[in-house]
Structures are given as C-alpha cells and as structure tokens.
Design a protein around this nucleic acid. Sequence first.
DNA 1: GCTTTCCTTGACACCGGTGTCAGGACGCGC
DNA 2: GCGCGTCCTGACACCGGTGTCAAGGAAAGC
Lengths: 356, 356
Amino acid sequence: MTLKPRRTKVEPPKFNGKRPTINDVARLARVSKKTVSRIINKSPFVKEKTREHVDAIIKELGYRPDPMAQGLASKRSFLVGLIYDQPNPQYVIDMQQGILDVIRGSGFELLVHPCRRQAPDFLQNVRAFVERQKLAGVVLPPSVSEDDALIKILQEFDCPYVRIASVPLDEPEHSIVTHDAEGAQEAAEHLAELGHTRIAHVSGPDTFRSAHERRAGFVKGLKAHKLKLERELDVKAAYTFQSGLEAGRKLMELADPPTAIFCGNDEMAAGVCQAVREAGREIGKHVSVVGFDDSPLASRLWPALTSVLLPIRLMGRMASTRLLGDSLIGEPPPEEALGEVHPKLVVRGSTGPHRI
Amino acid sequence: MTLKPRRTKVEPPKFNGKRPTINDVARLARVSKKTVSRIINKSPFVKEKTREHVDAIIKELGYRPDPMAQGLASKRSFLVGLIYDQPNPQYVIDMQQGILDVIRGSGFELLVHPCRRQAPDFLQNVRAFVERQKLAGVVLPPSVSEDDALIKILQEFDCPYVRIASVPLDEPEHSIVTHDAEGAQEAAEHLAELGHTRIAHVSGPDTFRSAHERRAGFVKGLKAHKLKLERELDVKAAYTFQSGLEAGRKLMELADPPTAIFCGNDEMAAGVCQAVREAGREIGKHVSVVGFDDSPLASRLWPALTSVLLPIRLMGRMASTRLLGDSLIGEPPPEEALGEVHPKLVVRGSTGPHRI
DNA sequence: GCTTTCCTTGACACCGGTGTCAGGACGCGC
DNA sequence: GCGCGTCCTGACACCGGTGTCAAGGAAAGC
C-alpha cells in the first residue's frame, strides 16, 4: 500500500486548457503547419535553423502529434499488431514484453490479436483486423508465421510484417530464425552421452513447423550417436500438458519403456513427468526427461526440468526492431539487429545417467 | 502443415478499388453522410424506412467505418487499454483473453500496457498513454487498480475505467470485486480440518492489497478453529517463485517447522514446495502446501497443488462488459453482468492430514 | 547581371468521419 | 387556414494532421 512519494505532478503547459495542436505550434513558431509536420516527421528538407526554432516551441508546449489525425491523413497507424495462435502463455507474455521493450516511448503501441488458425473465419478475421487498423506492422510468431495465405493478405494491404520461424524462410529480411533443430539435436546428444539408448520423443502437432524441426533435429542428434528413433517411441501430441500426460502414459505402458524422453515443449514434458511418476518411476533416475522452451515451469518442477532455452523476449525485440527500423529513435543494440537466434540446452535435475 | 481447406475468399464488393467510405454509402443511398453517420451510431432519430434502406447499401458495399476518422472526429478511440503491473503471466494472459472474449467482433481492440508502478515516471507514462490514445476505457487489475493517483488521472481525461479489486471499493459501478479473503479463509479451514495446528503463511508484497486480504482471510479462518498465526510462521515474500523459495527455506530451518503452509499465490507455493523438498520432507505428507490462483502451474506440479481458484478470464469478461456496456452488440451473458466473483478452493494432492 | 537549378517553405485540398444548427415535413389544435 | 411543436434530414464547419504543388529565395553557371 505504501509507495515511495512521487515527484509532484509536472503539468505540461497546456494551450487554452487543452492539448496543443500542430496549429498552435505553427502559429507560435510563425511557420506553416506543414513545416511543423515536416519537423515531426524528420524530413531532411528543413533548414537547420528553422528546425531548432520549432523544436524549441514544441518542447515548450509539450506538443505531441495526435496519432488518430496522423493515421487518418497518412493512412497508417502507430499500432503494432501481435497476431498469434499460441497455447503457451509464457511464450506470449515474453514476446509481448520483447516488442514493448523496443516500442516503448517511440509512440507506437501494441495491439494483441490472438486467433485460432483452424477457425473457418481465420483469414477473414485477420483481414478485417489489418485493414481496419492500418497497422504499422505485425509480428507473427509460429504457427501463424507459417500461413502463406495470411502472408498474402498482409502483402495485399501493404502491411509490413516479421515472421518468426524455426527455419530460414525465403524472405530473410522479414524473418527471425530460431533454428529449433539445433536445440533438439543438442538435447538428443545430451541424452545419448548420458548412456541412454532407448530414447523416446513426444512431438508437437503437425500444424506447427517447429514440431517437425524439433523432431528432425532430435533424430539427427540420435544418428550422430548411431541411435535411431524407434517407431513405438515416436509419439505425437499437441503441445499441451494433457496431451503430454497421455503420451507419457502410453510410453510407460510399453513392454520395454524408454529410459529417456525428449519432449517438444515444456508443457508436454510436465505431462510426461506426471505420467512417469504415476508409473512409480523416478524422474532423472529411472527416466530422464527433457523439455523445450525453458519456460518458468521448467525450473518450478521437481526435479527441475532440463530444457532447451529459446530467448523469446529477445526474439520479440528483434522482430519489432526489424519491423519499425528507422522509425525508432536511436540505434538498436547490435544483438537486436540480428535476424537469428540459437537455442541452448539448460541441464537440470530431470536428466541423469542411464542405469542398467 | 496440413489444414482443412478454407472457404474460398469472400471478396467484399469494393468501391473503385478501395474501401468504401461514408461518402460512397451516402451517395448510393441518396442521403447525406450525416444520416449515414447517425445510422452507424444507432441514433434513434432516424426514420425506420431510411435506416433499412441505408443499412442495405452498407451491407451491399461491405462498408465499415474507419476507426481513425471516427476517433479524430469524436475524440474517442475504439481501443481498450489493459494497464497492469503483474508478475504472473498466466494472470495477464487470462485477463487479456477475457477482455478479448467480449470485445471480439465489436470493433474494439485491446492495447496492452504493462508498467512498473514503482517507477518514478509511472504516472507520467500512463498519463501520456491515456491522453494520446483517447482510450475507450481501461481495465485495471491489481495492483494498479489500487493507485488513487492513477484513478485521478483517468478521471481528469474522462477515461472510463474498471478496477479489479480484492475488496469492495467506494465506486461499485466501476469495479469488479474478487473477495480474496473468502478464499484464503477457506484454505485455512481446510488445513485446520486436516488437523494441522502449526500453519504458516507466506504472503505477497505490501504493494498489493490482495496480499493483505489473503492474509487477513487466512487469519480469520484460523481463528474460526481457535488457531492463530504465530509470528515466526508469518513470512513476507514477493509473489515470485524465488521469494517463495527463500521464504520456504526460512520456514524449514525453524526449530519447530510448520506442518502446513498457505501461500499468497501459486508461484510462491511452487517455491515453497521446492524448499520443502530440499529439506528432505514430502509434500502432502510431512508438509501440506496451499497456493492461490489455481494457475496451470498448480496442476503441473507433483503432487498437484491445492489452490484457491480465481476465475480470472471471467473477471476480464466482466470488466470489459462493464466498461463498454451498451456499445456492445447484444446482451451480455448474465454472469458477465455481475460485479463480483468468489474464489473457490480446489483440493489436490499437496494437502493431506496432519501426522503426529 | 541574368538565367537556371536546387533547396526550403507555405497554401490549400483532403483523409473520413462527427457536432451544430437551421430548415423542411408532418401532425395537431383551434 | 394558420400557428406550433415534434420529428427527421442535410449543409457546413471542423477534428488534427499529411500530400501536392507551386512559389520564393539562395546558390551556381554562363
């Protein structure tokens, strides 16, 4: 309830009781409103001296352009859209936070638009959203980033976009690549090096490209150790806890159950852990489990989950930096200017050496 | 990758290659644009026949008013703000989802605005946000809902708001009450009825009213069973996993540690569970643990966490229903029209009878 | 010195709606 | 038939910016 006392309210000098407009600035600066407009838009065709003079008045008045008016006139808003179909709350929050890290203070705002890609009106819905809001750009995490029809619509409306994908796309300037396969490969090798040979995989749904990538990287990692993914140890699930639980039960019921399980994400890994326990076996001892995402959940489980870390917040920063580019004030930190990230395995208690 | 085939694109009849405007509608309907404006704003001063005629043209053209233009002219946008300072991702996601449940399809959109209430520029920041965007309304979950200075700013800009609070406020028409104390009381009684007498509490930070309420309700529940909260069993934490872990360790180091622990939220409960395990004791057997929120985390832990359920998504629906009221199409479901919710204890494996 | 060219600025229409207010149509009482 | 109130509609200015284009002034070329 008690907070530090705040600075006394800094009342910005108001004009005639209300917000100053571009007309007020123009009048006081004795220039046309068009010149003021040029200055707030950083047009290069303004004499240095004029700019300084007007900038001073702008600061004095505390003038800030009205986004609605700008939007109406220029047919482009200052809203960034985040369109997603993601079951994982932490992913969404981190992504939002990353985008906000970048746009904060730049005059842009974040509009969130969850959707269900499977819904029959998905495209109509997104089309209406994009068309009406005249978005400054949209960030597309998986799996919407993989929807070609959606991309077409965005192009049709000249709406800039950045796709976040697990593999390089044909338009690198509009994408952030996460190389999921590398992380999965690392996970497989980690388990193989612990001596496991009967290693199972619980994969995400077909509708996610990442599910394929993670599985493929995993298989590749196994192959590097002369192992392969047995058919009965290759289970499909849905990136949800419940589906992981069911997949885990199926694996535990096998005549010769696996001693290690790599899961396509942490939610499913949590479900698998529960199934392992139900079967009376101990995580990290009888059965090693690895997740993917390194969500907070991973460290809250017991034993804590070994998982593949994806720097989602950084990805959000990268995506919005790409999107807005020069519209932003100042140079972005170098790491944000990149277009790729690499997953990293975080080893915790849920994986341990194979016991005979 | 494979999705059900979608309906073929329903191309809305466009006007001259671009979106139809109010002028197009007016011209085709042979009325003034003002009359069209009246119709889209559901003004009662329009003859039934005129309305039908114009509505037909609107539908035929697929006309939708431009939110920017409406915003500029009416000085009010169609954006709903969610201003929050919440460490719990699941809370935020659920709240967002609840709001979106209601506004979807009504032309409103959701703008997210996380902030740190402790930051020196907190008020300036929110003020700028509200002033510039001319929000249709804002939803204020705890703890920002408890900030009187913030409320004043919103009133100053005539920005409608709904506060979500753990106790009734002095403006019931602008608030959703969650009665946290009831849930905490229920948790205390549950533990007492299991035979526990040395019951600890790990509370949230002072900056959250809910932390007080939950503690107070808990104490009340104890009192009903002639128990009281010992000073050494009353630990303050910060609603985070890490702080819960530290609080749990402190409790486990006591000469006479508690046999049951009620935590102000699930994150802290997860930390406490970990501390209990570190101390070599078993959850639900040697030490019972109860959380608050019933977040997904609760059911993913092992044993699953007994927790107090708060219907956050419903709260989000209620809040936005209140906010937008008549601007929404159709009647809201009765449950959403209410202004109160009541927490409910969900018993799982983390609590069990006291053993001597 | 005069013309040409480039740079800088402003006038004005326009973006797509809403607010104000005046005026026409209509029904009613006398 | 006239006056009056009610109901409905449209003309027009306006919201606060941006796009277009032409003009003014300075610098460069002859």
